[in-house]
Structure formats: structure tokens, C-alpha cells
Amino acid sequence: MKIEGAYSIAAPRETVWQYLMSPESLAHALLGCEKLEPAPDGSFQAVLKIGIGAVKGTYQGRIELADVVPPVSYRMKVEGKGAGGFVSGEGTLSLSADNQGGTKIQYSGEAQVGGLIASVGQRLVQATARQVVNQFFQAFSKQVLSPSAK
């Protein structure tokens, strides 16, 4: 499954980058994120509770960043496991100045779902992924733009 899109935030690139590299801020923006902690190998351990309407699941996973080019881009590898299924994906996030003085975050990646989610959820899997991403960026931009953040 391909996941790609772009999101603009009315904040300078350096600021956005800072937030994107901060586990606390990411954890805060990821709805249902119960844990996001750095692991000794440089990756992050995460526990995520995803809820879309009545559908709810807890996922334990690992997020790894690579090819970090501040404040331009990084590659992200995600692996998650939950009741009866798994999610894994790899993608790139890149930041560029948009034409209104803000920052455009472009993301593009491939995600794979397996087990229960794959075999019973194909109808909604794409819409769900889209919603999780949208919610993330909404919460993320709110955080970046919140007065306390400045």
C-alpha cells in the first residue's frame, strides 16, 4: 500500500524539523501514543493505541530513522505488531519551504499490513491509514503553532 501526501505548516523549516526530531512532540501528536522512547540502538520503542470508531487496537513497535539530513529529510522505518497482525513500512519525509513562508512536509512510503488486519480489513485499510496520517499532521501542526511552543 502506498502512502503519500503533503502537509503545510505555517512555521519555519528549522522549527518544524526540531519538532519532527523530538520524541516528546511526536508522541504527543500521534493520537493514542502511549509510549515513544529511545532504545539503545538508536531506534524508538513505541506503544500505540489506534482507535477508529469502534475499531480499536494496541500496537507495539519500533521506529527507526536513517539518512537524517537536517533540516531536509530522513527515512523512517516502522514496524508494529498487535493483536493478530502486523504493520511495517518504510518511507521518506522531506521538508521544503512553501511559498507562504511556511514549511511543506512531503511524505511518501510503502506500508505492508499482515495477519488479521490484512485479511479482514482491506476495504478500510487505506482510508484508515489516511486518517491516522491526517490526524497526526493536524495534531502536529497544532503543537508546532501553539503559543506555548514558542
Partner: peptide, 10 residues
Amino acid sequence: PIMKLRLASP
């Protein structure tokens, strides 16, 4: 149905 699939477990 989603409870039987264990996608929801209230």
C-alpha cells in the same frame, strides 16, 4: 462482526 474478528474488544 468486528468484535468477533477481535478488531474491537470492549
